[in-house]
Simulated scan of single mutants.
Amino acid sequence: MTEGITWGIAPIGWRNDDIPEIGAENTLSHLLSDIVVAGFQGTEAGGFFPDTKILKKELELRKLRIAGKWFSSFLIRDGVQSVSKQFHEHCAFLKEVNASVAVVSEQTYSIQGTAKNVFGEKPFFTNEEWKVFTQGLNELGKIATDYDLHLVYHHHMGTGVQTLEEIDRLMALTDSSYVHLLYDTGHIFVSDNDYMTLLKKHRNRIKHVHFKDVRLTTLKNCKNNHLSFLQSFLKGMFTVPGDGCIDFKEVYKYLIETNYNGWIIIEAEQDPAIAHPLEYALIARKYIDENLFEKNHI
Rank of each mutant, 00 (worst) to 15 (best):
K253C: 10
P123A: 04
Y260R: 04
T2N: 12
E60D: 15
E250Y: 03
N138L: 05
P241N: 00
N98R: 15
V80E: 10
L140E: 04
G160T: 08
L227R: 15
T197F: 01
E166W: 04
E96K: 14
I167Q: 11
P11H: 11
L55D: 01
F40L: 04
E21I: 11
I256E: 15
S29G: 14
R285I: 01
H208F: 15
F74A: 05
L28V: 14
G39W: 02
H180T: 06
V80C: 10
F124V: 13
F87V: 08
Q86V: 01
D51H: 14
Y254F: 14
E139N: 11
F87I: 06
Q162P: 04
H276S: 12
Q107I: 03
Q162I: 02
E121K: 12
A268D: 06
P50D: 09
D51M: 06
K142C: 07
L216Q: 15
H187L: 07
G23N: 12
I111Y: 03
E106P: 02
S84Q: 10
D192C: 10
F293Q: 12
E96D: 15
N26L: 07
I288S: 10
V214P: 03
A144H: 05
K235H: 10
P272A: 00
N259T: 07
G39I: 00
E60P: 02
K200T: 02
W7G: 05
D18N: 09
Y109D: 14
I76C: 03
H155Q: 05
T163A: 07
R169P: 02
V214S: 09
E257F: 03
N127C: 03
F211W: 15
D78P: 03
L164E: 13
A38S: 13
E106F: 02
